[in-house]
Amino acid sequence: MIMSADALASARTGDEEAFRQLTDPYRAELQLHCYRMLGSLADAEDMLQETLLAAWRHLAGFEGRASVRAWLYRIATNRCLNALRDKKRRIPPTPVPPFSPPEPTSHAEAVWLQPYPDDLLNAIPDAGPGPETRYQSQEAVRLAFVAALQLLPPRQTATLLLRDVLGFSAAEVAQMLATTETAVKGTLQRARATLDQRRGDEVALVVPDSVQERDLTRRFAEAFTTDDIAGIVAMLTDDTWLTMPPAPHQYRGADAIAGFLRASAAWRSGRRFRLLPVRANTQPAFGCYLPQAGESIAYPAGLIVLTLGADRIHAITRFLDDDLFARFGLAPAI
């Protein structure tokens, strides 16, 4: 987007409307960038506000040698790096399950992860992949990608996002991170290698909002809300993962997941989950509700995001953070 010289001049005199004219076109994509960096929707919202406040305060020092967009990304990236270095960053407490779950297959390395509403993604114009990008825009917001980013050193995360997702040149990234192009190239190589190793073999995911996606999502919802564990297992791949951020325990494979679901059903003693459909990270999702014993009103009980292939479920991620419901426009009770 071409910068308006008149808007910049007016903003420098304290004109807030002119400043919004300069920065509003980038708000949604800047928040998504902060989310990719931090893995947290709540932190991304905070970092966006910090970025805009810093831009407002330092507008007089903006010389116009880079675009407004690149300047804002420089501020946002460095604010996120500061947040990742901050030992006071609020990490959610590990939830204590209300029942004794079976032994997990493994424990997660990173539990600091939240889903991202598709409604916010829809506000970002799709300019298509640039010549410097390596990842498609849809792939670069999926849960598996964002989760893998959280396991990289922060500067590797920043470099990979700026180069391979956003398409900034090595020279631009070096300027943003106050380093050299040679250092950027080395950091990027290490980030790519680590990310490729951690993500493992990629699966072909179902096309969003396709007939296949709608059918598999409907069948999962029916089985999940009726405690049809056999029906759920029939939809899983041999290596499907069930994870529950911020809880660290993970279950892999049909047998392990079925064992967890049976323990959950026994604890609920006939109470059934209710689901409301939403979308997160371009994937089908549900707000999950559960009534108290003897009550007809159901209350939030986690947000479920499904990773789907053509005819199977590859991952079930249930976020145990009921504060997410308001951000997804979900009711506090049904």
Rank of each mutant, 00 (worst) to 15 (best):
R79I: 15
G302S: 09
D311H: 01
S264L: 15
N122W: 10
W112R: 08
E109F: 07
T180M: 04
E63F: 12
E295N: 02
Q138N: 13
T133V: 05
V146I: 14
T180D: 03
A256K: 00
R134L: 14
D255K: 06
L38F: 03
R199S: 11
M176R: 14
L216N: 09
R272D: 00
L261K: 05
T77A: 08
R85N: 06
C34T: 02
I313W: 00
L120H: 05
V165I: 14
F319P: 00
Q21S: 14
L143P: 03
S169Q: 11
L308H: 03
A223L: 01
C288G: 02
S296W: 00
W56G: 07
A66W: 09
A178W: 14
S40A: 01
Y73M: 14
Q150W: 03
R190Y: 03
L195Y: 05
L303S: 04
E103W: 04
A147S: 13
V68R: 11
P291V: 10
T240L: 07
A144T: 15
I124C: 00
T307W: 06
M176L: 15
L152H: 01
Q138T: 10
L143S: 04
L41M: 10
N122G: 14
E172I: 06
A234I: 09
A140R: 11
Q136H: 15
R74P: 03
W112T: 07
D196I: 12
Y73K: 08
A204W: 06
R155L: 10
T51Y: 10
A326F: 10
R85D: 06
G294L: 12
L52A: 06
K87F: 05
A298G: 13
G128C: 03
D322G: 09
S106L: 08
F273P: 03
A331R: 14
A174F: 04
D43T: 14
L152M: 11
F319D: 01
Q49K: 13
P102R: 01
P208T: 13
T159E: 11
Y35H: 13
